[in-house]
Simulated assay, not measured.
Amino acid sequence: MPVEWQPVRQSRTHELVLESVEERVLAGELRVGDRLPPERELAPVLGVSRSALREALRVLETIGVLVAQAGRGPDAGARIVRNPDDALGRVLRLHFALGSYGLEDVLEARVILERSSFEAAARHASPEDLDVAEELLAGMSRPDVGVADFNDLDTRFHVQIARSSGNELTSTLTSAVRESVRPLILRALETVEDWPATAYALNEEHTELLRLLREGRGPEAADLAERHIRGFHGTLVDETAEEGTLDE
């Protein structure tokens, strides 16, 4: 059944367009994979300018629920998608940088999410899921691995465990929270006095985490994950508090 579009009110036009699209998604009239009508058709039906419509579509693309393809042909136009990971990570990074959340708040959120992820992964992760995590750990264990590459692989390791937990929302939130502090963790890693020793210690914990997951020992994996996060991330909280930058 084709979607019936209705004109929207003219005040704060692009936000009203967003509301119109949201209403149709919530009502099940728009689903993943559905395409919106071309701008030249949709704008007059909604009773808005094409510039206002484009502004609304850009917002939807930014928050990861729409992708727009320019040009002509079957792949052109705006299509409903679900891609929350990058969008949530971007939003959290910006709000963290602006001081909307303190580093201690992020730490506690990581602990809650990753305890849940590791405990669930011990029950639900497939051998293939854990093999992917093992490959990431192998990359982190290379003698010549640089700080930036280590930080990237470390982020992917934790996100991989979350994805193997069987809970997509936990995976998305874990990815977003970990990504939000990636720049800060990178800067902290770059200042450690003995980088090889730091990398070795972190990887020892990563190795033990994987062993516990393969053995299905969820509560022990959750406890170690918390110690692992508080060990390094916790030092960032202490250092930032000493510098007095949490509220700046």
Rank of each mutant, 00 (worst) to 15 (best):
E4S: 15
W5H: 13
Q10F: 10
Q10G: 06
S11A: 15
S11W: 09
H14W: 01
E15M: 01
E15N: 10
E19D: 14
S20G: 14
E22M: 09
R24D: 02
L26S: 04
A27C: 11
G33V: 07
R35E: 03
L36F: 04
P37F: 05
E39R: 14
A43K: 04
V45N: 11
V48S: 03
S51D: 01
S51C: 01
L53V: 01
E55S: 12
L60V: 06
E61Q: 15
T62G: 08
G64C: 09
G64Q: 09
L66P: 01
V67N: 07
A68L: 02
D75N: 03
R82H: 08
R82Y: 06
N83G: 13
N83Y: 14
G89Q: 06
G89C: 12
V91K: 05
R93E: 06
S100T: 07
L107Q: 12
E108H: 00
A109C: 03
V111S: 11
L113P: 00
R115P: 02
S117T: 08
A120H: 00
A122Y: 01
R123Y: 02
A125I: 10
P127S: 04
P127Q: 13
L130D: 03
V132H: 15
V132A: 14
A133E: 07
E134V: 10
M140S: 03
M140T: 01
S141F: 01
P143D: 02
P143L: 11
V147E: 06
R156S: 06
H158K: 11
V159A: 13
I161R: 15
A162C: 11
S165P: 00
G166I: 04
N167Y: 00
E168R: 12
S171V: 09
R178D: 05
L184H: 12
L186G: 11
L186I: 11
T191G: 04
V192H: 11
E193G: 14
W195H: 08
T198D: 05
N203K: 07
N203E: 12
E204Q: 05
E208F: 02
L209Y: 08
R214F: 13
A225I: 09
E226Y: 04
R227Y: 05
F232R: 03
H233P: 00
T240G: 05
E243G: 02
G244D: 04
L246N: 02
D247K: 00
